[in-house]
Each structure stands twice: as structure tokens, then as C-alpha cells.
């Protein structure tokens, strides 16, 4: 197994994990629609709709 590289984790991976929360701009060093593409969920997926339908009304409206 490749040994854990803390510098790689801190300087390369951690910024990418943080950038995943920001839908307004591509991760630093990447260009939107050229080297960075949004991963978009499909809430219309039948499995998701079925799960949401099973939730109690309170849970469904919870913010």
C-alpha cells in the first residue's frame, strides 16, 4: 500500500474537499466546463422519490 502522504492530503486533497461545497466556482486551478464539471444529483430518481415519500411530513419540511 502507498504510505499516507500528509502533505498531499493537506495541500491537494483537503482544498478539493472544501471546494466541493462551493457550487459557485470551480476548484482552484481548474476551469469550469473545461477541466471542472459539476456533479449534479437527480432528485427525480425513483429511489429518492420513494424514500422522500416514506418520510414523515415533519421530516420532509425540516430545514
Amino acid at each position: 500500500m502507498i504510505p499516507f502522504d500528509g502533505q498531499f492530503a493537506e495541500n491537494i486533497v483537503l482544498p478539493l474537499a472544501q471546494a466541493a461545497y462551493d457550487s459557485t466556482q470551480a476548484p482552484q486551478g481548474y476551469t469550469l466546463n473545461q477541466t471542472a464539471f459539476e456533479i449534479l444529483a437527480n432528485p427525480a430518481h425513483p429511489a429518492v422519490q420513494a424514500h422522500l415519500a416514506r418520510l414523515a411530513p415533519l421530516q420532509r419540511t425540516k430545514r
Binding site: 457550487s23 477541466t35 471542472a36 459539476e38 456533479i39 449534479l40 444529483a41 432528485p43
Partner: peptide, 21 residues
């Protein structure tokens, strides 16, 4: 992809797919 959104207030973005050339 946008037409797949059943809820206009739902957050569809779950992150990024990047090419580290």
C-alpha cells in the same frame, strides 16, 4: 440535466468532477 430537478429549491450540486491533466 436541469429538467430533472423536481424541486426548484433543491440543491443539485454534489461536488466536482475534475481533470488533472
Amino acid at each position: 440535466v436541469r429538467t430533472l430537478a423536481a424541486d426548484p429549491n433543491a440543491n443539485l450540486n454534489f461536488g466536482w468532477f475534475c481533470l488533472d491533466k
